[in-house]
Design a protein around this nucleic acid. Sequence first.
DNA 1: CCGTTATAGTTACAAGTGAAACCAATTGCA
DNA 2: TGCAATTGGTTTCACTTGTAACTATAACGG
Lengths: 155, 155
Amino acid sequence: MPPRHKSAPASAEHAPLQLEHFLPYRLSILSNTISQTIAGDYQRRYDLSMTEWRVMAVLARFDGLSAREVAERTAMDKVAVSRALARLVGAGRVDRHTHDGDKRRSVLSLTDSGWAMHDDVAPMARAREREVLAKLDAEERQWLERILDKLLEQQ
Amino acid sequence: MPPRHKSAPASAEHAPLQLEHFLPYRLSILSNTISQTIAGDYQRRYDLSMTEWRVMAVLARFDGLSAREVAERTAMDKVAVSRALARLVGAGRVDRHTHDGDKRRSVLSLTDSGWAMHDDVAPMARAREREVLAKLDAEERQWLERILDKLLEQQ
DNA sequence: CCGTTATAGTTACAAGTGAAACCAATTGCA
DNA sequence: TGCAATTGGTTTCACTTGTAACTATAACGG
């Protein structure tokens, strides 16, 4: 019986990428897996997309932001934020009024109902983060922190 | 002048998530940034999506895979693979025929043109990976390797 | 054998996303 | 002032993506 797949000749001449050892690919798998798990949690319980959750999370920390500021803090583009806000305001999770003195800007904050949802979801998200970090020992966690700091630092 | 945003009262009662220190969020930003940079490289030069590139990358390593096997190796779902293959076959980058003895299965491999594209793109991808890793010293790179291994290990 | 179940892959439809166009309010500056 | 350029935000349109349904072939079990 011949071997299922021939890989030797290809590697010799073409140096194909080994996806399973390729950092960008591995990061992408890891990030998607974790984010999906968390998103699953709150999508099961609430009708809430990941972008909507992120908007709520920044409004929980910074009350009164404008849509643009939310976009900055979430690293989302303004269209995505606008859409998320439309749904959140519609669902009564977020309050929006107009900035005095600049009628273009909105002033956003969580409603009581938004806070209730936040206070339910945030601990689930944190618990999932702990689940992930539990796979590492204290030393590894410190290194991870440091490595992410360096990789995420601008330029 | 009053403070722009009140965050203290919220944090006291509601313990909002600090997105900028939240591992899943940070991973997502990092992963998206890196993947976008690489995808930009080959989208500028070829009309090639990230899913298509991943399919090509595994076919470069494992000649003769079926679509399902490609899906397994890329962690993509079979619909995404089917679509990527339709485009790649249409563009003459991938050869598809039917498995002898199981007419459901396809047998996939890169064409000469597919190999040429691969041999052009793979070094760019590797160069981008090196750019990222250059932000770390040797010790940090080793820890990152080890940490990703642990976090990606099944369950 | 023959009917049921499982597998490989594609198609169809709905929902999500991104880029560009757009509107309204504001700012800059001649 | 007043008009061009900028900014905040929404809408539109084309494209991508995900889920479910579907077709064709193969494997299983009586």
